[in-house]
Each structure stands twice: as C-alpha cells, then as structure tokens.
Amino acid sequence: MVEYVVSFLILFGAVITFIGSLGLARLQDFYTRLHGPTKATTLGVGSLLLASALYFSSRGTGWSLHEVLITLFLFITAPVSAHLLAKAALHLRLPALSQPPRGWPPAAMEMEPRDDKMY
C-alpha cells in the first residue's frame, strides 16, 4: 500500500518538476517564465521529499522526518527569490508582454530606508 502512495508521489513530483522547467524554456517573456519554476518546482520537489519521508519511514528503522526540513526551507525561500528576481527585472526594465503601470518601479526604491539604530 505504502509503495503505491510513494510511487504516485514520485511520479507526480517528477511530472510537476518537469512542467515547471518546461515553462521556463517555453514561455515568452521573463515575467511569465518566473511563474513556472518558482511554484511548480516547489510543489514538485515537495511531493518528492514527502515520498522520500514515507519511503524511509516505512522501512522499520523508525521515523524519518528530516525531509520535512528541506520542504519547509524551500517553501520559505522560493517566494523570496521569486520576489527578488521580479524586483531585479523591474529594475532592469526588461521587455514584458504587459507593461508595468506608470510610475513603477518607484525611483525612490533604489535607496531603501535603513534602520541604523539596529546596528
């Protein structure tokens, strides 16, 4: 039974990972390309890691939950890198299928306020 669940999760994760990279290769401008990898790969790798946790937990040598850590880490970091990439693309004014609205990126964005009291 566990083997079927693991197999399904592995197949699902691999297909989603592949589709994410396909989006990266196939779509037309940078902003649409951004959507494929940052989301699809998170779910794809997440389900692969879930499969791995299930597989190693079902071997009778106790629980194996450390895969959850990578999943958690990916779910925290993937949006941050997507946001930074989008910000960098706006900053460089890359050609886009739909133009950003007038006034974006704001000119004042280049100098982010820094909280000097903290240091």
Binding site: G13, A14, T17, G20, S21, L24, F30, R33, L34, P37, T38, T41, T42, G44, V45, L48, I70, L74, A78, S81, L85
Partner: peptide, 12 residues
C-alpha cells in the same frame, strides 16, 4: 532564474 531552477532540480 535558470540557475535557481537548476538547483531545485538538482535537489529533486
């Protein structure tokens, strides 16, 4: 972005 995707794929 391609490098980012490459490392996620490498994890997979």
């Amino acid at each position: 972005l391609a490098l980012d995707t490459l490392y996620v794929n490498a994890i997979a």
